[in-house]
Design a protein around this nucleic acid. Structure first.
Lengths: 340, 340
DNA sequence: ATCAATTATTAAAGAAGTTTAATAAGTCTT
DNA sequence: AAGACTTATTAAACTTCTTTAATAATTGAT
């Protein structure tokens, strides 16, 4: 029954967070700039800033050119003050990145797939080792190919050792570092959203054709859509034709499930899916994986879907680098955790 | 570039709002109860409460039974302190309700459809008259059968006098009362959501078959979905069959466009739509209009859609009173406006 | 009936951010 | 090079909410 109401106790944390994020967003700032963008009075900014400077969290970058009077001090956030760890677990391998607050990578690495391990020891030891070598790690973001509910891995076919396991709680207790766990496609759509210059509160669909058939990561109004039973984005099941759903339309007998996005059949199926999304949630953008489709394919889709929907309502179609977006999404989640 | 950060200046307003809403939600409360549910200290609650009591906004209901010590004073919100006006413009008529803070109707009324008027004078005079008779009206919520963007009527086929008109701005300037304008289906889905006991952040679809073909009001994670070009919910266009989209599947040659939801053709079309929604956004509930479908129809839909999607992921199917939900949604929007 | 125990309310002290005024540091002009 | 002007920073007074202590009202037991 607790209402979420801004109480002065929580103000300090909010202010620190505000200072951190605006300083990182702007790259550098003077006290006046911070005060104005945050709507907090100059003396308060001053107090927090000097405290954070003495902690080493903030650095003095130098003096501004004068605009007629005393030169203002310009501060930057110390990007090395905190580090984040992003790990993504895939079928065949496990990748990780150590990154600083401006998203620069400090170390990338690859390990045996921990999903093959029947227990979690491989992953645990991997994290343990990294934390020992980089004691400044202040957040861990883990991406998994399965459904996640508040840090608990909910449904992850093929990797039963993680099924119904509270990954977040387990590692937070173990390492005393905040942890966030997210589904791979959700992380990717988040990453794409926050990469492209912060056009707020968009609706996006990230389409992919994975090993287990096609799927989608869905964001509506800037929020990840998980659905009632974590089934959202399972577009395989959309009934597009009299006798076939999306997955059946793409599958050809005898061929591998890995799709080749090229032929007319695929074009029509995907354009119907695009039309369906448009008529239902009218997203801003639909994103395809760079390694799965060609630009020419997108043009065909755009033309074909216009047969179903007036073209002014159709989304922008874009190809993007899935792995980059995924990584960026995990970094973003980790950064959010760190800066709070 | 202004960040939204909790600053002490905005605290007073937030507290008043908190007191109002919890007092209305709980029906009545003591100072301690308010302090605990809001997380605000007792003396602060006390100060605001005595101020609001002297204004007449809050009433003393009496004393609690003693729990062993001094008896606590119990306060209630004065539901008559502020009134709200909800108007919904329909093709053939215009309905309005004056309601108080607990949602009780003070006066219901009906007028000629102002949409038939080539200008807005009929509506303006109607509001003017009501404001004169009920000076306590503190908010106006207007429902329109068209797309709305921040109070501006964006797309309203058939009523060109409202096309691209800033209804909210116009009446706020004219009457100095906060105004909110919302699309009819969006208001209905909002109303349904807030009626059923506040299970937070759900995803809902409100399906209807209006005069201009079927459509839907869509809520995802508790937010209304408007989409890139305000096209969301135009489910007519969903391509469900080889040769027909949803609307075409429902239309029979020579018959009126008003649907009869009964036959097998309709059952299959709607269950395909349900399946599509489930595979895309996996909503908690899909709501049908009570006067458009029978309970038996819902059972058929549930059975038929299970052919497309594993049934554990399917949404709950419900019939509801559209007009009630619509009205309740408008009231909710108006109340939100008043209590801030 | 009176006193101890319990609980609501009020009052005073403390903490934190804002506003306003004062001071320090630098620029530009003559 | 000195003084007037502009701007950043610091200091002090003020507002507001919280915490802690004190007081008032009520109940139950002796």
């Amino acid at each position: 029954m607790k209402e979420k109401l801004a109480t002065p106790k929580s103000l300090k944390g909010a202010m620190m967070r505000g200072i951190r994020t605006t300083l990182l967003k702007l790259g550098s700032a003077t006290k006046v700039e911070l005060s104005e963008t945050l709507g907090i009075s100059f003396p308060t900014i001053s107090k927090f800033l000097s405290e954070m400077e003495s902690e080493g969290e903030i650095l003095l970058a130098g003096l501004d050119d004068s605009s007629g009077g005393r030169r203002a001090k310009r501060y930057i956030y110390n990007p090395e003050y905190m580090l984040g760890l992003a790990i993504f677990l895939e079928k065949t391998e496990t990748n990780y990145t150590i990154f600083n607050c401006v998203g620069e990578s400090k170390e990338d690495g690859k390990a045996e797939s921990v999903l093959m391990d029947s227990r979690l020891e491989a992953l645990t030891r991997c994290i343990e080792g990294l934390l020992a070598r980089f004691p400044k790690i202040c957040s861990i973001a883990i991406g998994v190919p399965g459904s996640v509910d508040h840090g608990r891995v909910f449904y992850i076919p093929g990797y039963e050792q993680l099924q119904d396991f509270d990954l977040k709680g387990y590692y937070e207790d173990r390492f005393s570092v905040p942890v966030i766990v997210e589904n791979d496609m959700n992380a990717a759509v988040l990453g794409f959203h926050h990469n492209g210059g912060m056009k707020e509160k968009q609706s996006l669909i990230y389409l992919y054709s994975g090993q287990n058939g096609p799927g989608a990561g869905i964001m509506v109004n800037g929020d990840i859509v998980r659905g009632r039973s974590f089934f959202s984005g399972e577009v395989s099941f959309v009934p597009l034709y009299d006798e076939r759903n999306f997955r059946e339309a793409l599958e050809k007998e005898g061929e591998s499930k890995k799709l080749q996005m090229a032929g007319e059949i695929e074009v029509d199926a995907v354009s119907r899916l695009v039309a369906s999304f448009t008529a239902m949630i009218n997203p801003h953008t639909i994103i395809f994986c760079k390694d799965e489709v060609e630009d020419a394919f997108l043009e065909k889709i755009a033309a074909a879907s216009a047969a179903y929907i007036p073209s002014e309502h159709l989304p922008e179609l874009i190809v993007s680098d899935w792995k980059k977006d995924y990584l960026f999404g995990l970094q973003h989640l980790g950064l959010n955790l760190m800066l709070s």
